[in-house]
């Protein structure tokens, strides 16, 4: 995935069963953002892989004051890349294990 300066990781182990999963997001490189992020905190949230979109969550983070509105796309892309990896793993790895 492209280095966006915003890191997104699983905040819990993925057993491939729940559609909702906990993710943790933090800024690794503030210079890649257009605006100043709120602080250096890691933001933990749940994301529903079936019902929600990364764009929705990124918009809510902007509205909650974590990021400048000009950074909504880079935050959404960071979440989208991680979600794509989680879904890739679920489709290819979990059927083999089970």
């Amino acid at each position: 995935a492209e280095d966006t300066g915003v890191r997104v990781e699983l905040a819990e182990e993925d057993h491939g069963r729940k559609s909702s999963i906990a993710l943790r997001l933090w800024v690794e490189d503030p210079k890649k953002l257009k605006g100043k992020p709120k602080d250096n905190g890691a933001i933990e949230f749940t994301f529903d892989l079936e019902k929600e979109t990364p764009d929705d969550v990124a918009q809510e983070m902007v509205e909650s004051g974590f990021f400048h509105e000009n950074d909504v796309k880079i935050v959404a892309k960071s979440i989208r890349d991680r979600v794509a990896l989680i879904q890739w793993r679920r489709e290819r790895i979990w059927p083999i294990i089970q």
Binding site: R7, N40, G41, I43, E44, E60
Partner: peptide, 27 residues
């Protein structure tokens, strides 16, 4: 505690905690 919780009007809960120094890229 150093945890902060922010609830968006749509209902999503954001829990903010400090990022360990080891996880931050060197500036």
């Amino acid at each position: 505690s150093s945890l902060t919780q922010v609830v968006h009007s749509a209902g999503r809960r954001f829990i903010v905690s400090p990022v360990p120094e080891s996880r931050l890229r060197e500036q």
